[in-house]
């Protein structure tokens, strides 16, 4: 067990944001949190990294757990000059294994001297992921990491995450909006809306009434579409690699 959340409650003022959350992430698992806007996904993440005030409940992390966090955005003010390379060197507990993984993710080093604000969406994505890998984490936390990527782009990204899990054995806990892409890449899906509506294997969650209530009745079509799309995406990616 890497992370165990026990009856977690969080409220801002009088507004209950998260109610009675229980969840666990074991090593090597890919767990995805889905939910509508304002369902508390990001708050749950903040609680896990220790930046949201907990009203009651517990979050137990396994001792000496190494966490790699990939944020949604970076607020690089236009007044702040910052190269990708300098960003990668900001406060990390790097180790050799992690540095090697980061290097693999970065690929070409041509863009490291580029200002962060001038990176393309895909390059920024790689830089953020590479930074999270520098300490060779036991668990990766991805907060809507594919925002700003197109569908083939996010499919390729999730493929990379899966490869990473295979090669390093690190667990992945992620928030995602790409329902159809995410489903195939996860071992477990947690459907959140202030409380946990349902959780389990992707297919069983997708067919549960709670999930349909949240995401509408046309999910069937989307889900079918996704599997179809997924293959299409893969072949497209393979083609572009060839």
């Amino acid at each position: 067990m890497l992370i165990e959340v026990q009856s977690l409650n969080i409220q801002y003022g009088n507004k209950k944001v998260l109610e009675n959350i229980n969840l666990t992430v074991s090593s090597g698992e890919i767990v995805t949190i889905v939910g509508p806007n304002g369902s508390g996904k990001t708050t749950l993440f903040k609680a896990i990294i220790g930046s949201a005030p907990i009203a009651s409940g517990k979050i137990i992390m396994s001792p000496s757990l190494k966490v790699g966090y990939v944020p949604q955005v970076l607020n690089v003010d236009l007044s702040l000059p910052l190269t990708a390379e300098r960003f990668l060197n900001l406060v990390t507990n790097r180790n050799d294994r992690g540095a090697l993984r980061a290097k693999q993710i970065l690929g070409s080093e041509d863009y490291l001297s580029t200002q962060i604000s001038n990176l393309s969406g895909g390059q920024l994505q790689r830089v953020l992921l590479a930074r999270a890998l520098l300490n060779d984490p036991d668990i990766l936390l991805l907060d809507e990491a594919t925002r700003g990527l197109d569908q083939p782009g996010s499919a390729a990204f999730y493929k990379k995450i899966e490869e990473l899990r295979e090669s390093s054995g690190c667990a992945v806990l992620m928030i995602s909006h790409d329902l159809h892409v995410v489903m195939s890449a996860s071992n477990r899906v947690i459907c959140l809306n202030g409380h946990i509506c349902c959780q389990g294997e992707p297919l069983s969650v997708a067919s549960s009434p709670e999930y349909r209530d949240l995401f509408g009745s046309n999910i069937d079509g989307t889900f079918a579409l996704y599997q179809h799309n997924q293959k299409e995406n893969k072949s497209r990616i393979n083609n572009s690699n060839a």
Binding site: F45, I49, S51, G68, L74, N75, L82, L90, T92, L141
Partner: peptide, 21 residues
């Protein structure tokens, strides 16, 4: 210096790196 810079960029990233923003 570095801690302040990281907090300026993203407070959650700083918290995940073990800092207190």
């Amino acid at each position: 210096w570095s801690a302040l810079l990281l907090c300026t960029l993203n407070e959650d990233l700083a918290a995940a790196s073990g800092l207190n923003p």
